[in-house]
Design a protein around this nucleic acid. Structure first.
Length: 903
RNA sequence: GGGCGGUUAGCUCAGUUGGUUAGAGCGUUGCGUUGACAUCGCAAAGGUCGUAGGUUCGAGUCCUAUACCGCCCACCA
């Protein structure tokens, strides 16, 4: 007797926390790296993932839930395969995001960052990190993430700061980092430069302003020009026209006057100008537009910056000085109108650059910043993918990657922020040379002066993220971790940060370690709402993973995310799906309860040899097939499909069929009961292993209970292998070679028991005979007789039959004419339902004829098929399969005709 | 402008080595159920797999063209 009283429903709330603690305390997440430990094997290639570090002050959202589920799946699978497995967790200091939060908190006290000063601000930011930084790590634990918390890292850690310093200095020494004035994207609210990637363009309604550029010669002649940003007129240093434009050719070389300011600027000719667009004349503002900047360089134009750092107009704007850029736009335009310099305004659809973080309009302007000369790094990174050293999944993102790498621009890495890695550059106040050093210097490396000061800027957050796979393992030190675990195996993340992060890690990895930092890039899709829309607070369609876990359980949510996703494709999440998977977790739980209860009905291990029933063989054969298929799918990164197949097998074959049959087989007692219990245990146990990477909690809890129950049952049931300490360390089911009996067993069960039982169920429903009424049937068959001879009691019990008759030919007695019947086309058999109801007989002919029509069309189709080249050219196995189908159909058709004739 | 993806049941989506009139969940309809599970069971209805060609004995699956939807990159004053 087992003393197991498992709850009727799976109680995930009670289970999840306890199980997680059990795993963590037992040290399962922590691979050994100690040569003195017995389980350390330096010849084994470890499986390693570095977590995409979430923002340290972030809150868990579905994007996190997605990658945690995905990576935990990979990690658990590898761990079960017996591979030394490491998943390095950590978080990112998230320069701009965190600084904004701290500034927001300050703003509540009516202060700005300037009020408190840099040192104090950084202290506040650290305090903020200490207070909120742990939250997301706790939330990641709730997801069941089996990462090694003893190796947790933070991008501003001491070790990682050393890595950042090393990376910067080494790039600088190679001439791959330079400083200079260039046109960059300026974020006025944040008062920092941002990289091109951090600018997002949005299509918005704007205005195209047409105005007059008067000639300086006082002729009163003018060139019409259009712009979307009138305030930039203040910084114009030329007007460009196309060299062959008949309208404006004559003006080239002459001077025109900047409106209001009356500054004289040249008219130049450049082929870049599109004669068709606008007025065909282009104002040139080299300081505030990328193209204009290029043209300016080619024509040696003056560069006039008109903006302050907060996007107000500076001293170059004359009377507009101090005005905000947009206020200036209004006022300048009004003034121009008054001066009769305005032609017209028209509505215009334009693409507006906005800051990814703050959302405000970004201004292109000239500023002195630090840049990485990226082309040499990109070339090597490109090659690593081309050569197959790194494989990107799904494949089509390879092209996206190439496209980006081939057109890459230098990367602006300096940020005018306070929260981040300070740029390791010191300026000498005496000789004005720069000192770039790994250790903080106390004097100038050139003149020895102690009058030096460090660069005020910090590095782009992504600069440190790019080093993540190796900086977290100890680089630049040759630590044991670095030597053993680097390069990592898979980099798993969303495709939205392919450029931000993945591409940079590849470039940095190759540059600094000489090796690609990982072998596989697996990109998952974004999680959207059930209609496929992006989740956003304003739309109110945000699903909070914490709430989902609270109400439906972590396993259900993980399973939903994993099974609903295909690599690289966005997935639409709806609560309905999670509910369905909550039901699945409960189904697993209850199947487990049943199997445990079956142990009570099983005697101890018998001496006799195993006697398997058709059902036993069927479920074993299907289990083997599922294991093979799941392994194939895992090898090809098709985790979603793998999960789906396990789900289907578990529910519609194991639970719906085998367990139902097992109930009857257990009643027989003796050996039959023993082998049934053993089959139940073995199949369930294997399913728990397969499911564990998807739904770790319910499977672990059940597995441990099952193990204990078996030990205490005294049945001596084995699982054909060793039990492990815990499911998390149990071995992964490997594929077994396909054997002849598998197919035979599956075929036999499906065409025999399954089809007969389904047929009887259908007859019952069609004829409104409830299950509780016993009925008699006659099975007319030439093929199934031997196959099911032992299964008559089983079929009888499953269908509540009083009697089963088996004949080879249709009975000729008068009464049978009125019996409802159904054809079993895959075996060429017919089922007669003993129910003499003359009111039904009227319909019988039509029903039979309808069935016959269906079957006949199948026969026609197959005859045609088999008469075609198909028979000659298709593989014999395939042809044979169709032949068998045809003969079964033909037999069915004969029987149907006989019945019709007998009416 | 360049690139990529999608189009399969009422809805949301699976369906990767081409194998023969397509699957799931939810929804709908009907029936059932006190012993693993109502977080359940049995069944039904519902699809010419966007369109047009092509390759092949065979195409949802491969190729070409096309329509519509979506995304990414570059960005035109």
């Amino acid at each position: 007797m087992t003393k197991f009283e498992l709850a009727k429903a799976y109680d995930f709330k009670a289970t999840e926390k306890r199980i997680y603690k059990f795993w963590e305390d037992a040290g399962y997440f922590q691979p050994t790296n100690d040569p003195n430990k017995p389980d350390f094997d330096p010849t084994k290639k470890p499986f390693v993932i570095s977590i995409p570090p979430p923002n340290v002050t972030g809150k868990l959202h579905l994007g996190h839930a997605m990658f945690i589920s995905m990576e935990d799946l990979m990690i658990r699978h590898a761990r079960m395969k017996g591979i030394p497995t490491l998943w390095v967790p950590g978080s990112d200091h998230a320069g701009i995001a965190t600084q904004l939060q701290v500034e927001k908190a300050l703003a509540k006290e009516g202060k700005t960052r300037d009020d408190v000063g840099r040192d104090e601000f950084v202290k506040l930011a650290w305090a903020w990190k200490e207070e909120y930084g742990g939250h997301i790590q706790q939330q990641i634990r709730r997801l069941g993430a089996s990462c090694d918390w003893t190796r947790e890292r933070f991008t501003l850690d001491e070790g990682l700061s050393i890595a950042v310093r090393e990376a910067f200095v080494s790039l600088y020494e190679k001439g791959l980092i330079y400083r200079g004035p260039r046109l960059i994207n300026w974020s006025p609210n944040l008062r920092t430069a941002v990289s091109d990637l951090e600018v997002e363009y949005s299509d918005e309604n704007g205005t195209l302003y047409y105005f007059k550029y008067r000639l300086a010669d006082g002729s009163g002649d003018f060139i019409p020009v259009a712009t979307t940003r009138p305030e930039t007129i203040l910084g114009d240093t030329a007007v460009a026209v196309h060299p062959e434009d008949e309208r404006y050719k004559k003006y080239v070389g002459k001077q025109v006057l900047v409106p209001i300011l009356d500054r004289a600027i040249p008219v130049i000719a450049d082929e870049y100008v599109d004669r068709e667009f606008g007025t065909g004349a282009l104002k040139i503002t080299p300081a505030h537009d990328p193209h204009d900047n290029e043209i300016g360089i080619n024509h040696h134009l003056e560069v006039i910056n008109i903006l302050n750092k907060n996007a107000t107009i500076n001293e170059n704007g004359g009377s507009y000085e101090g005005l905000d850029r947009f206020a200036c736009r209004k006022k300048l335009w009004a003034d121009m109108k008054a001066a009769n310099l305005v032609i017209k305004e028209e509505p215009y659809r334009m693409s507006v650059p906005r800051s990814q973080r703050g959302g405000e309009i970004v201004e292109p302007l000239i500023s002195t910043q630090w840049f990485v000369k990226i082309k040499p790094l990109a070339e090597a990174a490109l090659k690593a993918v081309q050569d197959g050293q790194i494989r990107i999944i799904p494949d089509h993102f390879t092209k996206v990657y190439y496209n980006w790498m081939e057109n890459i621009q230098d990367w602006c890495i300096s940020r005018q922020l306070w929260w981040g890695h300070r740029i390791p550059v010191w300026y000498c106040d005496d000789c004005h040379e720069v000192t770039v050093a790994r250790q903080d210097p106390d004097r100038c490396a050139h003149c020895g002066s102690t009058n030096i000061h460090q660069d005020e800027d910090v590095l782009d957050t992504w600069f440190s993220s790019g080093l993540w796979p190796f900086s977290t393992l100890g680089w630049p030190e040759e630590t044991p971790d670095y030597k053993y675990f680097y390069p990592t195996t898979i980099l798993e993340t969303g495709y939205d940060i392919l450029f931000f992060w993945v591409a940079r890690m590849i470039m940095d990895g190759i540059e600094f370690t000489g090796k690609p930092p990982f072998e596989i890039v697996y990109l998952h899709g974004l999680v959207r709402d059930e209609k496929g829309q992006k989740m956003s607070k304003t739309k109110g369609n945000v699903i909070d993973p914490l709430t989902v876990m609270d109400t439906l359980g972590t396993d259900a949510m993980r399973f939903t995310l994993l099974v609903g996703s295909t690599p690289g494709k966005d997935t639409n999440l709806s609560i309905k799906k999670v509910e369905a998977n909550r039901n699945f977790a409960n189904k697993v739980w209850n199947a487990g309860r049943f199997v445990i209860s079956a142990l009570e009905k099983s005697p101890a291990k018998p001496n006799g040899k195993a006697r398997w029933t058709g059902a036993d063989e069927f479920i074993h054969a299907r289990m083997r097939a599922v294991v093979r298929s799941v392994n194939y799918l895992f090898e090809n990164f098709q985790y979603g499909e793998a999960g789906r197949q396990i789900y289907d097998f578990f529910w519609s074959e194991f639970a719906d069929w085998y367990i139902e049959i097992a109930k009857l087989q257990l009643e027989e007692g003796g050996d039959r009961a023993f082998y049934t219990a053993q089959t139940l245990v073995r199949v369930l146990e294997k399913c728990l292993r397969l499911l564990h990477p998807f739904t770790p909690f319910v499977t672990e809890e059940l597995w441990q209970n099952l193990k204990k129950a078996i030990e205490e049952s005294g049945t001596g049931i084995t699982i054909g292998g060793d039990w492990a300490e815990a499911l998390i360390t149990a071995s992964w089911p490997e594929s077994m070679p396909e054997e002849e009996w598998e197919n035979t067993s599956i075929q036999a069960f499906q065409t025999g028991i399954m089809e007969i039982v389904k047929g009887i169920r259908t007859l019952r429903l069609d004829n409104k005979v409830p299950f509780r009424d016993k009925v008699e049937i006659t099975l007319v068959t030439t093929t199934l007789q031997n196959l099911i001879s032992n299964d008559i009691p089983l079929i009888s019990a499953l269908c509540n039959l009083a009697k089963v008759n088996i004949t080879k030919t249709l009975p000729q007695q008068e009464e049978f004419k009125n019996y409802p019947s159904t054809a079993l086309p895959s075996s060429g058999s017919t089922l007669l339902f003993h129910l003499n109801n003359s009111s039904l007989s009227a319909d019988k002919r039509t029903q039979l004829e309808k069935e016959l029509r269906g079957i006949s069309s199948q026969i026609d189709r197959l005859e045609k098929l088999l008469g075609s080249d198909f028979a000659k050219k298709a593989p014999p196995v395939v042809v044979q399969r169709e032949r068998e189908k045809l003969s079964a159909f033909q037999e069915t058709a004969e029987k149907l005709k006989d019945q019709i004739n007998a009416l």
